[in-house]
């Protein structure tokens, strides 16, 4: 039966993830004077909670759910502005499993083996050998680099097969490297039928949807307490309407991500269309809300003492995953229109 309301069980999963993140990895961890550890030191703890193995079958040691629950978890991860490498772990484990490397799949999914996400810069060739230039996120200490193309192929590149160069990261708390692969042997890979690009867009869109929610809440809570002209600024329509638009963007992106996750889980023909649409909209809307959360905060909004700027910066980071808005627009236009009534 058609039903786009989260079930009681799904809500329990969401709540448990939100609880953990709220206590262990609040957005305040990104403040300069923060004492709380970064998520890199908690990777195996997050792995043990099953976040990177939601869609891995129980027979392979996974949670045995699917992309719907996985996308709900990733929305929370986006809301708390986690490293893009959560996506690398979830997809990397699938690549290993698809290649019959069950032990490696489980080690990645459990967070014992770390995978960094790489974004192609220019043309790449992904097969048994990988050629191309990439940008890698939070790659320090990662054993593998996950590379994907727009057609669905994916490969895990071993750390030693890569030529690295440290870049100066614009995103607080995220390190950036250039990774050059020149005919690098990558035996753990999957062909285009693997559909890595669709998973990548779905999970990135999900994190963008979460980011839109987080920005909406940060802005509207501040608008309730900050007083000017003798009243909370949220009473002024100029501010209220900005917050309402943030609510609309969060709702639209979230609903589309839910819809897309169902099509991906069911391997429907329109899965790529829906996931691409979600990634496009998520990127566009998160960038807007990331800017507006700063604007609503006024002067403190552009200081590092306020968390608002992280939403804008991570919106750009997530937007770049698998290609930014303009690229997603081209990709979506290249898709056939989905049949309206499936």
């Amino acid at each position: 039966m058609v039903d786009l309301v989260v079930s009681v069980e799904q809500q329990q999963i969401i709540d448990s993830v939100a609880d953990y993140l709220g206590s262990k990895l609040p957005v305040a961890r990104l403040r300069p004077d923060a004492k709380s550890p970064s998520e890199m030191s908690l990777w195996s703890e997050m792995g043990a909670l099953g976040w990177f193995m939601m869609a891995l079958p129980e027979s392979a040691g996974g949670v045995g759910l699917g992309e719907v629950e996985e996308a709900l978890v990733f929305r929370q991860l986006g809301r708390h502005l986690l490293s893009p490498n959560v996506i690398a772990s979830a997809i990397g484990a699938r690549v290993a499993a698809a290649r019959g490397q069950a032990d490696l799949a489980l080690a990645i999914a459990a967070g014992r083996t770390r995978v960094a996400l790489a974004n192609p810069i220019g043309p790449v060739a992904i097969g048994e050998r990988v050629d191309g230039r990439f940008q890698a996120f939070d790659a320090e200490g990662a054993d593998w680099l996950l590379v994907l193309d727009d057609a669905g192929s994916a490969a895990l590149a071993p750390r030693e097969a890569i030529r690295w160069r440290t870049l100066s990261s614009a995103i607080d708390g995220v390190t950036l490297h250039e990774a050059i692969l020149a005919g690098a042997r990558c035996p753990v890979g999957a062909p285009a039928t693997f559909g890595g690009h669709v998973l990548l867009r779905l999970l990135a869109a999900s994190m963008l949807a979460g980011l839109c929610e987080g920005a909406r809440d940060l802005a509207s809570e501040y608008a309730k307490v900050r007083q000017q002209f003798g009243q909370p600024i949220g009473a002024f329509q100029a501010i209220k309407h900005k917050c309402s638009d943030m609510a609309l963007r969060a709702d639209a992106t979230g609903a589309l991500v839910n819809f897309a996750s169902i099509t991906v889980a069911a391997r429907r023909d329109d899965a790529e269309f829906q996931a691409t649409a979600a990634k496009l909209l998520g990127g566009q809307y998160a960038l807007l809300s990331g800017k507006e959360v700063i604007q609503v905060h006024g002067g403190i909004g552009f200081t590092v003492e306020c968390d608002a700027h992280h939403f804008l910066k991570r919106a750009h980071l997530y937007d770049q995953i698998g290609g930014g808005v303009r690229r997603q627009q081209r990709l979506l236009l290249a898709q056939p229109a989905p049949e309206m009534a499936a």
Binding site: V2, D3, V5, A255, L256, F259, A277, L281, Q284, L332
Partner: peptide, 21 residues
């Protein structure tokens, strides 16, 4: 045009959610 495609897809998802509720 691409953004409009995505927006009408989102609208449909929102309506499905509303009817589900």
């Amino acid at each position: 045009l691409a953004t409009l495609r995505a927006e009408v897809a989102a609208l449909r998802a929102m309506s499905y959610a509303s009817i589900s509720r």
